[in-house]
């Protein structure tokens, strides 16, 4: 089977908004789109459709696990399923205060380009945050480029950054 072939996954229900899959190395992943209406202070048509993307490795065998590109394609397939609801917005948050978080963010950005998500009709807006207490993190919003509220979504993220970012 090709390395670009996604693994079979299961959707665990509308309420929980989570998906589960296993890999050829018996690693178990769970992906959840967690309702996050409190993040953007925007009109309900936007705020109520914001979901935080949470990826968790919930089981893995002992010892090193070889790289597995099929995970990437599986997560992409799951994302496409999630975005069947046109107004859905996914937010991915990464802690920038340590190398591991930065690496995770680079990996996430790389996926977006590698899987040609832009060509598939998605937009990603990135925003760095540097809060007054010195904590820094980045947030990426992903939504359908045909989302009729995209201008308002971008504005809402800008406003959030303006409120939380420490002036330089």
């Amino acid at each position: 089977m090709a390395n670009s072939e996604p693994y079979e996954y299961r959707f665990l229900g509308d309420f929980d908004n989570s998906y589960i899959f296993t890999t050829r190395y018996d690693v178990v992943y769970r992906i959840r789109f967690k309702p996050s209406f409190y993040v953007l202070d925007a009109e309900p048509a936007i705020a109520d459709n914001v979901y935080e993307l949470v990826i968790a490795q919930i089981e893995k065998p002992e010892g090193p696990i070889p790289p597995d590109e099929r995970i990437l394609y599986t997560i992409a397939g799951i994302a496409e399923d999630f975005f069947k609801k046109d107004l859905n917005i996914a937010i991915y948050v990464c802690d920038d205060s340590h190398g591991k978080g930065k690496a995770r963010k680079r990996k996430f950005d790389g996926w977006f380009v590698y899987l040609n998500f832009e060509g598939r009709g998605f937009m990603k807006i990135d925003q760095g945050f540097h809060e007054a207490d010195g904590f820094s993190y980045s947030a990426s919003l992903i939504f359908k480029s045909e989302n009729r509220l995209k201008i308002q979504i971008i504005t809402a993220l800008d406003e959030l950054a303006a409120k939380y970012n420490q002036p330089k």
Binding site: R30, R32, K34, V39, V54, I58, V93, D95, A139
Partner: peptide, 22 residues
């Protein structure tokens, strides 16, 4: 108190809960 810390904590907590639930 801090949106960033709150979001990161929420993410870690969700990951942990997904593991425990499993």
């Amino acid at each position: 108190k801090s949106l960033g810390r709150w979001l990161m904590e929420s993410k870690r907590q969700t990951q942990k809960e997904m593991q425990e639930e499993y």
